[in-house]
């Protein structure tokens, strides 16, 4: 007997709707040489290092210079004097190292897939939005919507972050050394959020799935966010992940609270795998 969810999803056209856009089957064929890279990914050498002084350059020009350096094979790029400018280091689709000596403004490190980014200062709103893979580490604080719609990779802020951290998160891991603001994990669908400090109000509001770990206090939980038992697997994962970024508390991880979706509003567990692919 077809389940209720199957019937509803058929009526919604989910079974017959073709997948469009970038697809892993067409873009990552094993038989094609180099088939694991995007069209715009560069083959770079991590040992080739270059620097850009951003002091008197507009963001568009800085991003263009980064691409030129990647085109010429540079795999390690240092940005000096970024001056909290907006929209820097975006759309980089290959492995490489980027070191930022200073702070970024809004929408930094968006749409990344692969790079390893280290930022010595702070970052503004919407840092790491839609990142698919790679590692970004921020040494100071971050603004709101940190890791919005994150799909993969590790996004780390050693300081505190603003509100709506991990909103609409679809995968990957967000780690915060300090506190996070209101509505963190709002509508998150997959992935993990780890906060070593306190969380503001409405934590995990309307979350579909995913896991949130909070080391400090929680002002209150959002709709359909519920506490869950911290398992040995959780402890091991937390300890390993936090140690990787030197954020493992001296007291360990036993005091962390685990928050998951109650799945009373919506449960993806009732969907077929192809349907999940459409919605997640």
């Amino acid at each position: 007997m077809a389940g209720v969810s199957g019937s509803v999803s058929t009526q919604m056209g989910m079974h017959t709707e073709p997948l469009t856009g970038r697809d892993i089957k067409t873009k990552f064929r094993l038989e094609n040489e180099g088939g694991f890279a995007y069209h715009f990914a560069r083959d770079v050498d991590f040992n080739r290092r270059a620097e850009i002084d951003c002091a008197d350059i507009e963001p568009t020009e800085i991003n263009r210079q980064i691409r030129e350096l990647m085109d010429s094979g540079h795999g390690s790029i240092v940005l000096r004097n970024p001056g909290a400018k907006h929209s820097l280091i975006v759309g980089i689709l290959n492995r490489m190292n980027i070191i930022v000596e200073g702070s970024l403004g809004y929408f930094g490190c968006g749409l990344l897939d692969g790079p390893n980014v280290r930022i010595s200062g702070r970052v503004g709103w919407s840092f790491g939005e839609n990142m698919m893979a790679g590692v970004c580490v921020v040494e100071k604080n971050a603004g709101s919507t940190f890791g919005a719609a994150l799909r993969g990779g590790d996004l780390v802020c050693r300081g505190s972050v603003g509100s709506r951290t991990g909103i609409d998160q679809k995968g990957g891991t967000i780690i915060v050394g300090g506190d996070t603001g209101a509505f963190s994990g709002f509508m998150m669908q997959r992935g993990r959020i780890v906060v070593c400090g306190n969380a503001g109000k409405n934590l995990g509001d309307s979350m579909y799935d995913g896991t949130i770990y909070i080391g400090g206090g929680i002002q209150d939980l959002g709709v359909d966010a519920v506490p869950a038992e911290l398992t040995d697997l959780d402890r091991a994962w937390l300890a390993r992940k936090l140690a990787m970024y030197e954020l493992l508390p001296a007291a360990g991880v036993d005091h962390f609270t685990k928050i998951v979706a109650g799945k009373q509003l919506w449960s993806y567990d009732n969907l077929e795998p192809t349907e999940k692919k459409l919605v997640l």
């Binding site: 909290a84 907006h86 702070s103 603001g181 209101a182």
Partner: peptide
Amino acid sequence: SEEVAIRAIVPHEIDTTDPYD
């Protein structure tokens, strides 16, 4: 509203925060 405005008068690296809700 944006750190670039503060940097216009304090050009050196600084520690800034976002006030919460």
